[in-house]
């Protein structure tokens, strides 16, 4: 027994030594899965450190919102030079903290469909929300959001109060149905299997066969093809168009090393980084002419619809309340 304890102690001590390594030149706040060993974090860190001869450190929060909340709590005492992993729907709230400095990046290299003009936040990947289905079970998938809502196919989606895809669906419904979205929510609720807290709960239930459609990303099938060699999972293309999620990075006003921080932002849209991100974060590159596995060519290419960031920020509470009342059974 005592040897067991000794082992535990050693592991604790050694880990705390690792944790206390040398001072970082550039600190980046991001979310957990970005820096997990199979996420983009480790490879990006290696590539950037080779370029800048500096020491990059990621500090991971639970998810995108948690990065924003941490900034709100720490205010000007934050350690971040760069924040990475906020999505476009949270841009206005993040800007409101007053902690973000202009990125001073050249945006001309970005894909035209992004229509990106923001001078504080720079995109590094994006994806479209989409309903994923198993083509070995469904040969005739629905072709519009309206068809899905009016069908009796079982659906899994995420709670807009706790997850990003859930918020995405909320905007999607609003963009398609406008004032009629309350009835649409009610109709959807009648064949919804369940509404989960986060993305993976819904997605794993779907993989276990719990529903016909699950709310996810247009890029999800790429993972199954590349990592698992499974072809049957597909995203349904909807004729009304799809809402996008654009993940962005920004430099903080409080950074001690703003020049290096801007270099990092620049690096994120370099072809090196853009080749790493899609196959580790399973999102689309924001620049053209990136070499990607063939699986990405098979993905759907939806039309983009949605709202401006300002609209989302001002309407979110109202939309949430509408969903809450309509979807409660």
């Amino acid at each position: 027994m005592s040897r067991f304890f000794a082992l535990l102690l050693t592991s604790l001590l050694s880990a705390s030594v690792i944790a206390a390594d040398k001072q970082a030149d550039l600190t980046v706040y991001t979310y957990d899965s970005f820096v997990s060993e199979w996420g983009p974090g480790p490879k990006l860190e290696q590539a950037f450190e080779a370029r800048c001869q500096c020491n990059l450190e990621f500090i991971a929060a639970e998810d995108g919102v948690s990065i924003l909340n941490r900034l709100r709590i720490e205010k000007s005492k934050n350690k971040a030079d760069v924040i990475l992993g906020i999505d476009d729907a949270l841009i206005e709230e993040t800007r409101a903290t007053g902690l973000i400095a202009p990125h001073q990046q050249d945006l001309s290299g970005l894909k035209a469909e992004l229509k990106w003009t923001d001078s504080d936040f720079a995109p590094f990947d994006y994806g479209y929300f989409a309903f994923v289905y198993d083509s070995s079970k469904i040969s005739q998938p629905v072709s519009s959001l309206d068809q899905l809502v009016k069908s009796d196919a079982s659906v899994l989606y995420q709670d807009p109060r706790t997850s990003t895809p859930g918020q995405g669906l909320m905007m999607w419904m609003k963009a398609v149905y406008g004032d009629q979205s309350e009835q649409a929510w009610q109709q959807l609720a009648s064949h919804t299997v369940t509404v989960t807290k986060g993305w993976w709960e819904a997605y794993s239930m779907f993989l276990q066969g719990s529903a016909d459609y699950v709310l996810s990303y247009s890029t999800s099938p790429a993972y199954h093809i590349v990592a698992e060699g499974k072809q049957q999972y597909k995203a349904a293309l909807f004729s009304e168009g799809h809402v996008a999620q654009i993940e962005v990075a920004a430099v903080t006003r409080t950074s001690d090393n703003p020049a290096l921080a801007r270099d990092f932002l620049h690096f994120l849209t370099s072809s090196e980084a853009q080749t790493i991100i899609p196959v580790t974060n399973w999102m689309l590159p924001v620049t053209d002419n990136v070499e990607l596995p063939q699986a990405f060519d098979q993905l759907i290419a939806p039309k983009r619809i949605g709202f401006s960031n300002q609209e989302v920020a001002s309407q979110r509470k109202k939309w949430l309340r509408e969903w809450r009342n309509a979807a409660a059974r």
Binding site: D159, R161, T162, A189, T192, V193, T194, V195, T196, K197, E201, W323, R324, A327, A328, R329
Partner: peptide
């Protein structure tokens, strides 16, 4: 509750 609740209800 979040996982098995099935909605805002």
């Amino acid at each position: 509750v979040l996982a098995l609740g099935g909605g805002p209800g």
